[in-house]
Every structure is written in C-alpha cells, then in structure tokens.
C-alpha cells in the first residue's frame, strides 16, 4: 500500500498529483499488478481532500488501463509499469543528454537551458491540448 501526499503550492490539480504519484510508484516498482490502492475513505481521511478528487484520479488511472475498481472492495493495480518504462527511458535519456551537451556547446548556461526546456515542454503540451 502506498500513501499519497499533496502539494497545494505546486499549481498541479490535486487529482493529477494523485495520478502522478501512482504512476511514479508503478515506475519505481513500489506498486505492482494486483496491489490495492488506498480506499477513497482512507485518502480523504488522511489528506482532508474532497472524495471526488480521489474518485477522479482513480477513474483516470482506470481509463489509462493502470487500475480497475472491484465494487465494494476497492481499486487495484492492473499493470506493472517499471520494466517497459525504464527501457524506454534509456533511449530518451541518451538523447536528452546529447541535447544538453549540444546546448552547453552553444553557450547556454543551466538557467537558460532550463528556461528553454520548460518553454518547449509547455508549447508541446499546449499543442497536444489544442
């Protein structure tokens, strides 16, 4: 079983924070197929958040095929993420490291690299939405 936490200053919607934390736990192997997620009541009682927030997060995980609800019992993990995603990371990581090296060679300092990275990330996710 994992425990959720909430960062109200992050600007990330609370339900997304729960989704991210489940995905992260899956990636790190803290959660595996068959594990039960905390019940809505437990999460609500611990974090003092709206139950609909938790329900929404769990629905999103179900929609992504990562979890499934068993009525009257709880929500369970239906997929293990760690192996597949780590393998996929390796390639992306190499490319990103190469890109960072290029950026340094072009004379960018860490702060400029970070600004550029964040700006691109934002416009890329903006395009996805539009």
């Amino acid at each position: 079983m994992i425990e959720f936490h909430l960062d109200t200053r992050s600007g990330v919607a609370p339900y997304l924070q729960v989704v991210h934390q489940v995905r992260q736990a899956l990636r790190l192997g803290l959660l595996r197929e068959g594990d039960q997620l905390p019940t809505v009541k437990d999460v609500v009682a611990r974090l003092a958040i709206n139950p609909n927030t938790v329900l929404k997060a769990y629905r999103e995980l179900e929609h992504d095929g990562l979890a499934a609800a068993r009525p009257g019992i709880g929500t369970f993990v239906t997929k293990t993420l760690s192996d597949a995603s780590l393998a996929a990371h390796a390639g992306l990581r190499r490319e990103l490291l190469r890109w960072f090296a290029n950026a340094r060679r072009a004379g960018l300092d860490d702060e400029s690299i970070e600004a550029l990275f964040r700006d691109c990330l934002r416009s890329a996710s903006g395009e996805e939405v539009a």
Partner: peptide, 30 residues
C-alpha cells in the same frame, strides 16, 4: 476538514462552506 471530508465520502453530502481564506478551501472544494 478530515472529519468533514470523511462525512462527505460516507454520506454523499453536498456542502457549502464560507471562508475568507482561499487556502482553506483549495483542498476540499470543487
């Protein structure tokens, strides 16, 4: 708020609560 949210989860209550502080409401209100 924990107590209140537990009640909401258990009994599907609708709730209206007032506050002059947004930070109080951010976690619980939709």
């Amino acid at each position: 708020l924990q107590n209140l949210m537990e009640s909401v989860a258990e009994h599907q209550l609708s709730v209206v609560l007032s506050s002059h502080l947004v930070s109080d409401l951010e976690r619980v209100c939709e």
